[in-house]
Write a protein that binds this DNA or RNA. Structure first.
Lengths: 85, 85
DNA sequence: TCAAATTACGGTCGACGTAAGGATC
DNA sequence: GATCCTTACGTCGACCGTAATTTGA
């Protein structure tokens, strides 16, 4: 698991749509789809419930989202702290 | 910045020696040395003070170490939470 | 048929290992 | 000279984009 993948996951969760998320983070749909799959594989849980024209978070995804956001904010704070000091 | 690089940095900080850290995390000395350099480049601060037979943390490195540890623990908690739930 | 996701395939960039070089004790 | 760290160089894997396939409204 890497921060990059958490950023991807949060982007998808925020749009509820892999295509738009991909645009938002300047990536293609397949690339993003693959990374989410890889993340799910490593975690051992599905994070998205694939639907017709969109995706929804699974229970595991709902649990993950706020913690992933915290973690990314934590990483931002780390950078500010080390750079600022 | 990726979690992998933070894991590498913590390993180096814990041994005070790139060679031994590399052994501990099953990596070669050059690979580890490069990743630390890359991390320093991205952050914009030196993290290590290169000495004769070892390395020491710089001020920025000392600031970074505890936060990096927290962040990695945070990542572990995330995994446990998502897997356990 | 349209819009979304996935799978397949090829290319490119990055991380790694081996080997060589440099510095300090 | 021994033990570090770094630089150079080639390889392999990972991520990415394009194209093709699949699925559902």
């Amino acid at each position: 698991m890497e921060l990059r993948q958490l950023r991807y996951f949060v982007a998808v969760a925020e749009t509820g749509n892999i295509s738009r998320a991909a645009q938002a983070i300047f990536l293609t749909q397949p690339a993003l789809s693959r990374q989410i799959k890889a993340l799910e594989g490593e975690i051992g849980r599905d994070l998205l419930e694939r639907r017709a024209n969109s995706v929804r978070l699974t229970a595991a995804g709902e649990v993950m989202l706020p913690v992933a956001r915290e973690l990314l904010q934590h990483a931002e704070r780390l950078l500010q702290l080390v750079r600022g000091g």
